[in-house]
Write a protein that binds this DNA or RNA. Structure first.
Length: 569
RNA sequence: GAUUCCGUAGCUCAGCUGGUAGAGCAACGGCCUUUUAAGCCGUGGGUCCUGGGUUCGAAUCCCAGCGGGAUCACCA
């Protein structure tokens, strides 16, 4: 690929720097004793501070005013202006450092170190008065130039494709992007602290699994060579965590990357993060209390308030949350009371409500469909929807008062599922039966039914204490707490189609068919990617194109004769 | 997967019913010792996503492909 004009200029600068004895990529530690944030916070109150600082950052903008210049430097804490004066950074008669190195050979995007003192300019801006300037790393590609004034952004760098594919550029140029990921880290840290305070154990379980269990979803399949068996990336970690409860831990949790080979959109990425936690001797009612306490705590620790804006809604994570059984929710929002109704009656109800149904749908699926279409989006404030039908929840214990239902809740926020929890099924005989029912559903045509995990059933046969478990989508939680409606905004590197590979043509390939060395590069720059491609073009045309290119770029090589070109064919 | 919109300079974007590709920033050259989205003056920079088609002539119209966004479907 031919380099752009600006890239070529920067590569030349790199050579010039080396000629001047300046290493554009020095190895030595650069000691830093101040950052942008603390300078801006503390200096206005105490001007005796920061009078001998060492600071490192990236040049974000530059205003050269003859023998004095202003640059904006960015470090991990923010941006600060630096004032660079020629006679200050060039002590003696030799002004090379300023006139050549700084003005000509350094660029926006370069990473530099400065030593000096902090002062306030006439315009009232806290700035670093630079006494020594050191190049720490040379940038060969130009950055997008984004400017801001009074909260208004000019030339914003917004192309989603470029922002996600080159997240590093996004992070450099768009200051607010970094905040989202800092908050993401704080949210996770806050949850971890919350669990550790209760004495629960953070664990790791296999990502590579022979049986992808714990949820109904299409898995990614791979192959283990030396065992010569198919393996799957996990779709959930539920069954492994419950085995650990059988093993005797009373509380275990894991921040897990799960993988699902399904559609991608604003709220789904093929790999995503889920927190699952299991606590022995508890039930789903306890877990509701625990969950609302947890969310309130995170909100307070991360935001300092339980209220936050998401899109057009203000969401309040203050406990307690409303608790609504799913059949009651359906009754409220559709008028249909499905309690105790047969599958046929439910199917009829779904049809009346204008839903498309088919015979593969059991009671569970029908209820889920009705709830999903007619009710789910109505729950904006955090609400626990409870007591799902047994068919939908093969890993969940039957309801203590109604065997058609289960002790399950989903937490709805802003009309979307955020968390899912059960009183865990620990009856091994019932569990085996439920797995077998799943197989029947699969045979009926339900491609979302679960795989059977007989080792998990065996573990239950050794007795698992009564347990409650909860899973919460971390990406969605971060979306709520950072007011982002797209999952891609809360993942550093959201999944994208790979960039098409650009085949780099090699000059040798052209030399091999008889081109002179000086022409081999020209042919590539002129747009021929392979000898075959060149030969598909008529020799007369190639002859014209190449000589035209030579003339246009004023190349100092003799023009080609047509016979020379014909000789390549 | 369906529908729809988009792809033009390093970046952000103009470019009309088809007629020699434009602006701002960035870059380059010059001036300039406290400026602030852009100091002042000047100069260069393009595979108009790719490939076909229509046409005397295509960034523009048509078809196909690639990539991306949005909406929908799927994701218990």
């Amino acid at each position: 690929m031919a380099l752009s004009e600006q890239e070529q200029i920067r590569r030349n600068s790199l050579l010039e720097l080396r000629k001047l004895g300046i290493d554009p990529y020095p190895a030595a530690e650069y000691k830093v004793n101040a950052n942008a944030k603390e300078i801006k916070e503390k200096y206005p109150n105490e001007e005796s501070l920061f009078q001998d600082i060492s600071f490192a950052g990236r040049i974000m903008s530059r205003r050269i005013m003859g023998a004095a210049s202003f640059v904006e430097l960015k470090d991990s804490t923010g941006r600060i202006q630096a004032y660079i004066k020629r006679d200050e950074i060039c002590g003696g008669e030799d002004k090379t450092m300023y006139n050549i190195v700084f003005k000509r050979l350094m660029d926006i995007g370069d990473i530099v170190g400065v030593k000096g003192r902090v002062f306030i300019t006439k315009m009232g801006e806290i700035s670093i008065y630079v006494k020594e300037l050191t190049l720490l790393s040379k940038a060969l590609k130009p950055l997008p130039i984004v400017k801001e004034k009074d909260g208004k952004t000019y030339d914003a760098f917004t192309d989603p494709e470029m922002r996600y594919r080159q997240r590093y550029v996004d992070l450099i140029v768009n200051d607010k992007v970094s905040d989202v990921f800092v908050k993401r880290s704080q949210i996770i840290q806050s949850m971890r602290n919350f669990f550790n305070r209760q004495g629960y154990l953070e664990v790791e379980t296999p990502i590579l699994q022979a049986i992808p269990g714990g949820a109904a979803a299409r898995p990614f399949k791979t192959h283990h060579n030396s065992l010569d068996i198919p393996m799957y990336l996990r779709i959930a970690n539920e069954l492994y965590l419950k085995r650990l409860i059988v093993g005797g831990y009373e509380g275990v949790y894991e921040f897990a990357k799960d993988f699902r080979n399904e559609g991608m959109d604003r709220t789904h990425n093929p790999e995503f993060t889920v927190l699952e936690i299991y606590v022995a001797y508890k039930d789903y009612k306890w877990m509701m209390n625990f969950t609302e306490q947890m969310l309130e705590t995170i909100a307070m620790e991360v935001h300092g308030t339980t209220k936050m804006i998401f899109g057009e809604n203000e969401i309040n994570f203050q406990a307690p949350y409303a608790r609504v059984p799913i059949l009651e929710a359906i009754k409220t929002h559709t008028g249909y009371d499905l309690n105790g109704k047969s599958e046929e009656e439910m199917r009829a109800a779904a049809r009346d409500l204008g839903l498309t149904v088919d015979d593969t749908m059991g009671k569970g699926k029908l209820i889920d469909e009705i709830f999903g279409e007619k009710c789910e989006h109505k729950y904006i404030q955090p609400t626990f929807i409870t007591d799902y039908p047994v068919e939908m929840s093969p890993l969940c214990k039957r309801h203590r008062e109604n065997p058609d239902l289960t002790e399950r809740f989903e937490l709805m926020v802003n009309g979307k599922e955020l968390a899912n929890a059960y009183t865990e099924l620990n009856d091994p005989i019932d569990q085996l039966q439920r797995f077998e029912d799943q197989v029947k559903l699969m045979e009926r045509g339900d491609d979302e039914a679960m795989f059977i995990d007989l080792d998990f059933v065996r573990s239950l046969e050794y007795a698992m204490p009564p347990t409650s478990g909860m899973g919460i989508g971390i990406d969605r939680l971060v979306m709520f707490m950072t007011n982002n409606s797209s999952i891609q905004e809360v993942l550093f590197f959201p999944q994208m189609k790979p960039e098409p590979k650009k085949v780099l043509p090699k000059p040798e390939d052209f030399i091999a068919i008889g081109l002179a060395e000086e022409w081999a590069n020209v042919v590539i720059d002129a747009g021929f990617n392979s000898p075959d491609e060149l030969k598909e073009t008529k020799a007369t045309k190639v002859h014209q194109v190449l000589n035209g290119y030579r003339k246009k770029n004023k190349l100092n090589i003799p023009a080609l004769a047509l016979t020379e070109v014909q000789a390549w064919y």
